[in-house]
Each structure stands twice: as structure tokens, then as C-alpha cells.
């Protein structure tokens, strides 16, 4: 155990929270800055959809993909400045979180995924890293606020109610399966988190579109594009979660002698898997509306939250690793 490194890990965590808070504010300013341009944007978005679908020449790969904002020259300077600052701070915040996780790992001489604090920090880190990496390929400034806010909430919870001092882990956790199973699980949860954020936006956007009233959301992609984007995340998250459950079962046999014992944590992992499978089914079922399917995906995310924040802490289970 290295106290010094552990202290620095916490320091990096607090710095990350400060930086991400500023980034969140800048993203909010960016969105606010878009408002004056909103009437023009509606038409722009319409015509863009037309180009994408029926233009004479298909858009080359470099063109703005459907679903991104209209060309940046339409974005007022004020918003563009805020957006650039927000992106920069988000990148810095992601790096600080990576540093925090790495320092914690070095401090405890093991993979830093052994208790609630470490799960939460790792999840916050991977959400930010995925978001920043993905931002380099697409214009995602409109999404920033809706990612940084939940990440901050998560960091706040891990550093207060779930904080656990740096230490070793119990024998059941001393296995390379920890690295495989928990890492994939956390990554999968991060992907589902991004998917859920976009899914919520798609539902709100669908409502705005049917109401026909002008709104700030006019500058965001259409509900159809948002829904498709959310589906894309879930399509990546679901196989990862399937693998998580399988790896967990293999590990359970190593550690407890039986690959499936209907332990509450196993039950909830199964429920999450079944609900997301239902989402994929609903989306492929003819006659189901996309919004209905999206609600099922959000139910899946609610189950993830229950599994993490409630089952880990309050349920009597073999998985009593929360360290609380």
C-alpha cells in the first residue's frame, strides 16, 4: 500500500471534478448560445436530411453525417468559443480521471476495481474517455452537457458516500477474472450510460417535434437520428454485457464452485440482460413504435442503477464487495 500515491489519486479525482464542472458550464453556455440561430436551423436541418437521402450524389464520407449539427459557420461565435473551451476541459477532465484510476491502481498494487468507489471512478473515467474520443470524429458539443452532468453526479457519489480507503482485496477477488469481468462490465455500463443519455434526448426531441413549438432542442439532431444513435450504443453495449455475464459465471465457478447460484447480483445481471434483449426485440418487432422500444432501453438502464447502487450495498449477497 502506498499512501502517497493514494493521496495523489484522490487529488487527481478532485481536480477532475473541478475541471468537468467548468466543462459542463461551458457546454451549457454553448447550448444557450445557439438559441438566437434557431429559426434558421430548422430549415437547415430539413434540407440536410434531404441531401443525405435523395441528393444527386451521395455525401462523401467526410461530409457531416446526418444527425450532426448543421455546418459550424452557422453557430454564433459566442457559442463556438464556449464549445471549444468545453471540449478542451472535457479532454482534460478525462485525462485527470485516467490519472486518478492509474494512481489508485499503483497505490494498491492491483487492478483498481475492487470496491464501490473504484467501480464508480472507473465508470466515470470510461464514460468521459469514450465521449471525448467519439467527439474527435463527430460534432458532439450538443451532447456534452448531458454527459458531463451525470458523470459529475457519479463522481460526487463515489467521493462521498462510496469512498473506500486504498487497500487490498479479499481472496475471492484475487483473480485475473477480476480484470476481465469487472473491466468489461464497467465499460459496458459506460456504453449503456451514453446510450441512455442519447435515448432520453430522443424521447424529449420526439415530444418537441410532435408539439411543433420552437425550442432549444431544434438545434439538436432529429429524434429519428437520436434514436438511431442510441440504438448504436446499445448494440455495442449488449454483447459486452452478455460477455460480462458469461465471464462472471466462469469466475463464480472458480471462486464459489458453481457458475450460477441466483445470487441477487446474478439475478440483477440477468434481469438487465433480459430487459436489453427485450429492447432489441422490440426494435425489430414490426408494429412497435421506436419510442416504445426506447422506454424499454431506459428500463434496462434503471435496472443497471438498481444493480449498482442498491443491490451492491443493501442486499444480502455473496457479492459483498462494496467495501462499505
Amino acid at each position: 500500500m502506498n499512501e502517497n500515491l493514494a493521496t495523489n489519486a484522490n487529488l487527481a479525482m478532485y481536480s477532475a471534478m473541478a475541471v468537468i464542472t467548468l466543462s459542463m458550464l461551458a457546454y451549457a453556455l454553448y447550448l444557450a448560445g445557439l438559441v438566437p440561430a434557431r429559426t434558421a436551423s430548422r430549415d437547415a436541418q430539413r434540407s440536410e436530411v434531404l441531401v443525405g437521402a435523395e441528393g444527386e450524389t451521395p455525401s462523401p464520407p467526410a461530409a457531416t453525417p446526418p444527425g450532426a449539427l448543421a455546418g459550424s459557420d452557422e453557430v454564433p461565435l459566442r457559442a463556438r468559443k464556449a464549445g471549444a473551451i468545453a471540449q478542451l476541459l472535457a479532454g482534460l477532465g478525462a485525462l485527470l480521471l485516467v490519472a486518478s484510476v492509474a494512481l489508485r491502481g499503483l497505490a494498491v498494487h492491483r487492478w483498481p476495481l475492487g470496491n464501490m468507489y473504484e467501480f464508480g471512478t472507473f465508470a466515470a473515467m470510461s464514460v468521459m474517455v469514450f465521449f471525448v474520443a467519439w467527439s474527435t470524429r463527430r460534432d458532439l458539443r450538443w451532447l456534452g452537457l448531458f454527459i458531463t452532468a451525470p458523470v459529475l453526479l457519479l463522481c460526487g457519489l463515489t467521493t462521498t458516500v462510496w469512498y473506500t480507503q486504498a487497500s487490498g482485496v479479499m481472496p475471492a477477488l484475487q483473480s485475473y477474472w477480476l480484470v476481465i469481468h469487472v473491466t468489461i462490465a464497467t465499460i459496458s455500463v459506460s456504453v449503456f450510460t451514453l446510450g441512455a443519455a442519447v435515448a432520453v434526448l430522443s424521447l424529449v426531441q420526439a415530444r418537441v417535434e410532435t408539439s411543433g413549438k420552437p425550442s432549444l432542442l431544434d438545434r439538436l439532431p432529429s429524434s429519428k437520428a437520436l434514436e438511431r444513435m442510441a440504438y448504436g450504443f446499445h448494440v455495442v453495449g449488449f454483447p459486452l454485457w452478455t460477455f460480462t455475464v458469461i465471464a462472471g459465471a466462469i469466475w463464480a465457478r472458480q471462486a464459489w464452485g458453481s457458475y450460477w447460484n441466483w445470487d441477487p447480483k446474478e439475478v440483477w445481471s440477468f434481469i438487465i440482460w433480459v430487459v436489453y434483449a427485450a429492447y432489441l426485440h422490440a426494435r425489430a418487432t414490426s408494429g412497435m413504435r421506436r419510442t416504445q422500444a426506447t422506454w424499454i432501453a431506459l428500463a434496462g438502464f434503471a435496472c443497471i442503477i438498481v444493480n449498482y447502487a442498491i443491490v451492491n450495498v443493501y442486499f444480502v449477497s455473496q457479492h459483498s464487495y462494496s467495501g462499505l
Binding site: 441477487p264 439475478v267 433480459v274 427485450a278 426485440h281 425489430a284 414490426s286 435496472c303 442486499f315
Partner: peptide
């Protein structure tokens, strides 16, 4: 497919009390 969907959701709900 619709029945499969309903049964999947029912399975999720039925698994719950055991936890």
C-alpha cells in the same frame, strides 16, 4: 415476436422477487 417480447419482459419481472 410480440409474444417473445412479452415473455422476455415477464421473465425479467418474475426473476425479481428472488433477489
Amino acid at each position: 415476436m410480440r409474444t417473445a417480447l412479452l415473455l422476455l419482459l415477464a421473465l425479467a419481472v418474475a426473476a425479481l422477487p428472488g433477489s
